[in-house]
Simulated assay, not measured.
Amino acid sequence: MASNILHKAETRGHANHGWLDSHHTFSFANYYNPERMQFGALRVFNDDIVAGGRGFDVHPHDNMEIISIPLEGDLEHKDNLGNTEIIRQGDVQVMSTGTGVFHSEYNANKDRPVSFLQIWLFPNKLNVTPRYDQITLDLANSKNQLQQIVSPDPNDAGTWIYQDAWFNMGLFDKDKTITYPVKKEGNGVYVFILKGSFTVNGQTLSKRDGLGITGTDNIGITSLEDGAELLIMDVPMLS
């Protein structure tokens, strides 16, 4: 039987450092909520706005799959693997941090903020050789349908990570209905609303709301307004 975990936008952790305005769906940094530690393999889901010209200085990560999705503006990435890149709206960046990566992230523009999602998943393989990947999506493929952006398969659509997880994004007209089939038995699905509103398995969700769903093979989704956009994360629930 399906079970839902609702996270309304206003219940997220919040930290405003002036240069960084961040909302945390799960416990992170100074935000700690024992009931909000993770959703299966999904450990961190941060909704960040960074002021012009500011950013995160060089810092380390290891044994985590990190996915960055810019929503507005341009984010400059540098790492000790030799990558210097700009990621923009319509891009998806992945780092498999494995044995260890040092990187920095800065707003590439001084005159406007950058908004992006930073998402961490526990990997299914530890101490891999660190890797970096970045793709640019054809946004037409997200119109009134789901576009796969992350999977476990290097030969599949989008980019890939060391985890049995699939991410999809879609931008919908009002009253468009789709059914999302869960990709792997035992996986749960976390739905996050980027814009507008939807009903998801009978639950009404608005901008920046999240809903974790377990115990079902299919999820019904209906957009409630034009321009409604969502992100679907299909992840192992872990034992």
Score class of each variant (00 low, 15 high):
Y106I: 06
T84S: 11
Q148S: 04
P154Q: 11
G13Q: 05
D138V: 03
R88G: 11
I119H: 04
L231H: 10
S142Y: 00
G52I: 08
L224D: 01
K8S: 08
L81M: 06
S239Y: 09
T84V: 14
G53W: 03
T25M: 07
M64G: 06
T199V: 12
I149W: 00
D226N: 13
N141H: 10
T216E: 08
F198K: 00
P152K: 05
A228M: 08
T177Q: 13
T99V: 12
L126K: 10
H103K: 03
P123L: 04
E105C: 05
G52Y: 01
Y162T: 08
I161S: 02
G202W: 11
V200N: 04
N155I: 05
E229A: 15
G212H: 02
P152L: 05
G90C: 08
T25S: 15
V114M: 00
H17G: 13
R54C: 14
F167V: 03
Q148R: 13
E185H: 14
M237G: 07
R36Q: 08
D138F: 07
A51N: 13
E225C: 11
G55R: 10
N141G: 06
G188H: 01
R12V: 05
N107C: 06
S206N: 15
L121D: 03
N141K: 06
I86F: 00
V182T: 11
N46L: 06
G100Q: 07
P236D: 08
E85P: 12
L137A: 07
P130R: 10
G53C: 08
G18F: 02
N80F: 10
K207N: 12
K195A: 14
P130I: 12
E72R: 11
Q148P: 13
N107W: 00
P60Y: 07
G220D: 07
G227I: 09
G13R: 01
Y106D: 06
N144F: 10
V58I: 11
M1Y: 11
L211C: 06
E185G: 09
